[in-house]
Design a protein around this nucleic acid. Sequence first.
DNA 1: GCACCGGATGATACTTATAGGCAAGTAGGA
DNA 2: TCCTACTTGCCTATAAGTATCATCCGGTGC
Lengths: 166, 166
Amino acid sequence: MSPADKQQRLAGFLAAHRDSGLPVTIQRRAVFEAIVERPDHPTAEQVYRAVRQDLPQISRMTVHRILGTFVSLGLVTKTCHPGSATRFDPKTHQHHHLVCLECGTIIDIEDSRLNSLPWPEVDPREFAIQDYHVHFHGRCARCRQKERESARPAAGPRGAGGPQDT
Amino acid sequence: MSPADKQQRLAGFLAAHRDSGLPVTIQRRAVFEAIVERPDHPTAEQVYRAVRQDLPQISRMTVHRILGTFVSLGLVTKTCHPGSATRFDPKTHQHHHLVCLECGTIIDIEDSRLNSLPWPEVDPREFAIQDYHVHFHGRCARCRQKERESARPAAGPRGAGGPQDT
DNA sequence: GCACCGGATGATACTTATAGGCAAGTAGGA
DNA sequence: TCCTACTTGCCTATAAGTATCATCCGGTGC
């Protein structure tokens, strides 16, 4: 994330607080800075550990509460993957995800073709659709590499840079 | 689910166990029967409660283990929604979900237009996509009804059948 | 029908994630 | 600078999921 982008996100953060009448505490600022800098999709626990580098006395509970506040302010979105804790995504515009079925890594996808899908024909009295999100499931490079290495333990898995057969 | 469908699913269950060399225990059979009968997407805890009606002595641990086994056998799929526990879906063919952002209810969508989406252009060395899943977010009828009722507490929220303004 | 074996089960305790209450502290405005 | 309302940090509690290990049971060979 470029410094200019970061400044812009920070301005949005301040504006959202002003508009809602919420005070801008150093904890909120620290949590926000910790989350916008990350390219990944951290869990509350990961955010907590990152924030503790700046604010060692912050409590886990506070991080949870602040992340909840950010979600209601629309500053971050919640996402999740079966078998792992709730993750927080600093991107709020429409985008989609690649999810590794083994390690749970989430990778962002920006593909405009996916932003204009047909909405299913649902009776609006039954369900009011607001937006959608596509999860592509599969296996990331690291997990596939690990699998290749463990599949041939006797054939020299570290040999000559490894066979790039994909 | 019709009795014929259920018989077919049960046959698939038995075949999957035979093919994998796994024993068919009464616990596994009970968990499977509890999950195929449900039209919703129960959590492990809900499956546990349902199974206890037939097998009061079954442990929560066993239900978790059996559901994990079923996922690896491909008999059920895991799904999840931020803020709620992992849910299990007895449907294994490609389908999509409506997810209520308030109560977490998950409703199945069968819309063939969503089954042939363009896959994003990802370097196959970076990520091997296997399948995908579309989540539509919004609010279900019950939550919207509740909101309407709480939005006008002084205007007679129970009056004359309620204004059907949707 | 019976015995055996490997894997499954059940009880318990443990870990992790999240929530509520309350006193003390702090941001922001007068 | 002071005041007030909101936030924070701590403690405890709850829920979901996991690890371990002795015991039990399904499946198979005899």
